[in-house]
Design a protein around this nucleic acid. Structure first.
Lengths: 112, 112
DNA sequence: CGCCTTTATGCGGCTATCGTCATAAGCATG
DNA sequence: CATGCTTATGACGATAGCCGCATAAAGGCG
């Protein structure tokens, strides 16, 4: 039986949704995956993703404001890196769910 | 040191982002919160959220296709309920992060 | 100081999605 | 069957967000 906790306030709901929205775009997820492999400068992110410099700059800015990435200045260059394990943990949970659903769909197909 | 796993394929990235996109809208999050408290029929969801019937129907459809909610037919009425703990787990992780960030901001303010 | 490299931002086109209204489809009852 | 109640879907206006182009700002080098 589900616990009957109180409902979250609209403001909190808004915070949650804004956070999840960050992860709802393949471009940002791709950047996070790149940075999960280790620190990268913007040039290599451009090369790896094919996005324009301005786009990458904006997305990194959003991720930084959310505390998901941070950067170290090396002169005029900026080296970005992932911060924290949150995204990995979230993706692991989601991956488990996705796998379960695919397996059940597979079972459905095979039972025909 | 971060593990240097392989990069996810674009298709997988798309799957992840589509899933997170479901949670990136306050309306859907609100529905999920309502259903987390227990099964509800559509009329009570309309009353609780103020959204139109058509909108709620669409959002529930999306959540259902993702396996986050499911429904039992009671004659012509449909009773919806949350399915699985995934959303709760995800929100718990995010909440921890949000709290940490607010606390650190608070500490910053107090150190002035 | 001029020049180059690198990052941040204003602007605008484009697409996707939100949310509503109107309507259709399905099921129960008199 | 006709009526009423509940849910699903087509159409549409409004808005938000993606993404690139052009340009400004900031730092390094001769």
């Amino acid at each position: 039986m589900a616990a009957a906790g109180s409902l979250p306030s609209p403001q909190l709901l808004e915070e949650y949704s804004q956070f999840f929205r960050l992860l709802s775009e393949p471009a940002r997820l791709q950047l996070l995956c790149q940075l999960r492999q280790g620190p990268r400068d913007v040039a290599s992110l451009i090369a790896a993703t094919g996005f324009s410099q301005s786009h990458i700059s904006r997305q990194l800015g959003q991720l930084q404001r959310a505390g998901l990435v941070c950067c170290d200045r090396e002169g005029v260059r900026t080296i970005w890196r992932a911060e924290g394990e949150l995204v990995d943990d979230l993706c692991a949970l989601v991956q488990t769910r996705l796998r379960q659903r695919l397996q059940s769909q597979l079972a459905q197909l095979q039972s025909l």
